Simulated assay, not measured.
Amino acid sequence: MNYTLNDRVALVTGASSGIGQATALALAEAGAKVAVAARRTDRLEALAEQASGEILASRPTSPTSDPCGRRSRIRSSASGSWTPW
Rank of each mutant, 00 (worst) to 15 (best):
A51D: 10
P63M: 02
V36I: 10
V34I: 07
R75A: 01
W85T: 01
T13Q: 00
S52E: 00
E29T: 14
A46E: 10
N2D: 12
A35D: 03
R75H: 01
E54S: 09
D66E: 07
L56D: 10
D42Y: 05
A37W: 02
R70Q: 08
A46N: 06
A22M: 01
R43Q: 13
P60V: 01
A26F: 05
E45Q: 11
E54Q: 13
V12G: 09
A22K: 01
S62F: 06
G18S: 15
S17N: 15
T41S: 06
T61E: 11
A30W: 02
I74P: 03
L27K: 11
S65D: 14
R40W: 01
R8A: 12
L27P: 13
D66Y: 09
E49R: 15
R73T: 07
A30H: 03
A15T: 06
S58F: 15
R75V: 00
K33S: 13
A30V: 01
A78P: 04
I55P: 08
E45H: 13
A51Q: 10
Q21R: 15
T13N: 00
T83D: 00
A26C: 08
S16R: 08
D42A: 11
T4Q: 13
R71T: 04
P63E: 07
G80L: 05
A57D: 12
A26N: 08
A24D: 05
S52Q: 01
V12P: 11
A15P: 08
T61F: 10
A28N: 11
S62E: 14
A32E: 03
A35K: 02
I19G: 02
A15C: 11
R75P: 00
A26K: 13
K33Y: 04
G18A: 14
V9E: 15
G80V: 03
R70S: 03
P60F: 01
G69Y: 02
A48L: 07
E54I: 12
A22D: 09
T23H: 13
G53C: 10
G18E: 14
T64F: 09
S79R: 13
A38Q: 05
Q21G: 06
T83S: 02
T64A: 10
I19P: 06
Q50K: 15
I19H: 04
T61Q: 11
R40M: 03
S58K: 08
S81I: 00
G80S: 07
E29C: 04
A35W: 00
R73P: 01
